[in-house]
């Protein structure tokens, strides 16, 4: 049973189509990354999953059933921008939001206190929300979306505005929740986080699904034509003909090999060349990073769109 299933979902606003025939599934116990540039339709898609808006066509299913508002009690949602009552006391706020998700006041209070401890913000409990730092507010919002122990956790840009220590705390919490069998969907621009955390991804741009699948599947469709080299000494080897493009960040080079039927041979040739003039401390051949895939696919799609528009104008 999929936790979320979008089937051919379409949503148009007055002037533009936000989502074109989008389909994907999220299984229990997976961390799902919804990726895409700004304005690509991530938030529009999420809003349809939780019934804030209704798709023009296509279907949304939650927990194996057609969408129904009564299922929302099993969903935890963290919106992209902070949505908290500024003047309200933190604990009152958490209890209120917990109650809206069907908890009684006592349970909501008990869980709030436990979560505040886990998120290391016990000192914020008696304060008003507006007195807190942005990061702290983000943690409150994070707790509010989890109090009712949802089976589906949807986080729109959960790590924005957090320092590395707190971002890690939230990441670890999400990993723990996935281990408990919850499905976690999060949208982000931060590809390094996705690469580290996600089992499955979907990349959308301009409302279209560009690619989706497990992280391994997605990556395996790309050739292992990237080489990372950490070295000391001459950088002359970066001029090797097998290299299509190279960036050197003072002793840390990122290389893209020219297309070839035998990439392994090409990378070996580069390594041999490098060893003649430099001391190599690391040499790694790999698939493109998710970030590179992202940029490549989105750029290609934009170009295709521009062409399509150009044709339309003629």
């Amino acid at each position: 049973m999929s936790i979320v299933e979008l089937h051919n979902v379409r949503k148009a606003y007055d002037t533009k189509i936000a989502v074109h025939g989008l389909s994907f599934k999220i299984e229990p116990g997976t961390m799902f990354g919804l990726l895409g540039p700004n304005g690509s339709g991530k938030t529009s898609s999420i809003r349809m999953m939780i019934g804030i808006t209704v798709p023009d066509s296509g279907t949304v299913s939650l927990f194996g059933q057609p969408f129904d508002r009564s299922q929302l009690i099993r969903v935890g949602y963290l919106p992209e921008e902070r949505g908290l009552y500024k003047k309200m006391n933190v604990l009152d706020q958490l209890v209120f939001l917990g109650q809206l998700h069907g908890l009684d006041a006592a349970t909501a209070k008990k869980r709030s206190l436990i979560w505040c401890e886990r998120m290391e913000i016990t000192e914020a409990i008696p304060k008003k929300t507006e007195e807190l730092s942005k990061g702290m507010q983000q943690k409150i919002q994070f707790i509010a979306s989890l109090l009712h122990e949802p089976d589906l956790i949807i986080m729109d840009e959960p790590f924005s505005g957090l320092d590395p220590v707190n971002a890690t705390l939230l990441q670890d919490t999400l990993v723990d929740l996935r281990k408990e069998g919850k499905a976690v969907l999060f949208s982000t621009h931060r590809m390094d986080q996705v690469e580290k955390l996600c089992d499955e991804i979907a990349l959308i741009a301009n409302g279209h699904l560009l690619l989706s699948g497990s992280m391994r599947e997605v990556k395996s469709t790309y050739p292992r034509n990237r080489v990372q080299v950490v070295f000391e000494g001459s950088d002359a080897f970066l001029k090797h003909p097998a290299i299509e493009e190279a960036k050197n960040y003072s002793g840390h080079a990122e290389i893209k090999l020219a297309p070839s039927s035998d990439l392994a041979a090409a990378s070996n040739a580069v390594l041999a060349e490098a060893l003649t003039g430099a001391r190599i401390s690391r040499f790694e051949v790999m698939e493109p990073t998710l970030e590179e895939i992202f940029i490549e696919r989105v750029t290609a799609q934009n170009a295709a769109n521009a062409n399509a528009n150009g044709v339309a104008h003629v």
Partner: peptide
């Protein structure tokens, strides 16, 4: 402006 309704609308009408 505080976007709180987005949290609220995720559970209530």
């Amino acid at each position: 402006t505080s976007r709180i309704f987005e949290v609220l609308l995720a559970t209530i009408r």
